[in-house]
Amino acid sequence: MSAIAAPGMEGTLTVTPAASVALSARAVVRRYRNGRGVGPVDLVLRAGETMALMGRNGCGKTTLLRLLATVSRPQRGEVQWFGGDAKAARAHLGLALDGALEDAGLTGRQATHFWCAQWIGNRAEVASRTGAVLHRLGLGPAADEPVGSYSYGMRRRLALATAVVHQPALALLDEPTAGLDPEGCAQLALLIAERAQQGRSTLIASNDPGFVESVADSVAFLEEGTMVRCASPRELLAALPQGRVAELVVDGGCPATALRAVAGVLDVTADAGTATVRFDGDHTIAALVATADAPGGRLRELRLRRPDLTDCFHDLTGRTLQERA
C-alpha cells in the first residue's frame, strides 16, 4: 500500500499499486443529438497504469475524456474514480486539453501557480512545485515570460505542466504530444513513466503510435464511439502478421491494384495519392518502387517502418486513423 497526497491537498488517497482501481466506467453512454459521442463503453484503469485511447478524429475520444474528467455526466452507465464519485475525485485529477490556452498576459509561472493553488494550500509548496515542473518540462528559462510570447510547442508544454504540477493520482491528457518536439516527447514519456512508478495513473488520448507504444500499458481503440479492443501494445502488435510497412506518396494517383499484385505484398490501403503497403519479402521493395514510379505516376516519397498500432487499428476497423469519423 502507498499513500498519494500533496501537502495541503484535500484528503489523502491511499492506493495499492498493483490492484487498486483508479477509474472504472461501466456501460457509459454520452451521445449528442447528431448521433456523435461515445458509448456504451467499459473501461478499467488501475493505479499506476497508463492507458491510451486511440481512434479517428470525431470518434468520441474527447467526449469520453470529458466524462472521465468529471466535467460532463453520462446519460447512462456509471463512472467511479478511486471507488468514489466525481466530487471526491476532483481532488485527485489533473487535466490537459488539446487546444487549451492560457491567457497571453500571464507568465508561464503565474499560469502554473494558479492551477497548482487549486489543489495545494501551502504557498511555499505551490511555488516550489511550480518551479520544479516548469524546469522539468523545459520551460524554466521562459517561466517568467508572458505566455503570449511562447511558441505553440511551449504552450503545449505549459498545458501539460499545469495538468501535472500538483502530482494528481489520475492525469487525463488529450493529445499530449501535439506540438511537442522529440525532446519534449521524451521528457513527457519519462514523466509518465515516473508517475507510473509512484502508483499514479495516466490516461492519454493520442494517435501517435510510437509515443503510445512507449508509455502505455494498455491501448483502447475507439471507433464511432464504441470500444473495439482494449489490450496491451505488445498483445496488439503480436496479432499482426510479420513483415514491414511501406508508405508511398505518389503524384498522379496510387496504382493500388498494381501494388496488390506485387509478390510479397500482404495488404494495401490507398487513397488518391498515398498508399500503405504491408509486405513480407526480400525483393518486394524494389518491385514496389518500380510499380509506383511507373508511367502515369511519380513516386515522391517512400518511408519504411515496422508495423505499429495504426496497423492494428486498421486490421480491427478496416479504416485508417487519419480518416475522419
Binding site: D103, G105, R109, Q110, A117, V126, D144
Partner: peptide, 23 residues
C-alpha cells in the same frame, strides 16, 4: 528580471483577473 519575478502569483480567479489586468 526582478520586475518579472515580482509579478502577482495568482491563487484564485480574482488574483488571476488582477494579474491579467496588470499585465
Amino acid at each position: 528580471a526582478a520586475l518579472r519575478r515580482s509579478r502577482v502569483m495568482p491563487r484564485s480567479l480574482a488574483g488571476r483577473e488582477l494579474a491579467i489586468a496588470l499585465s
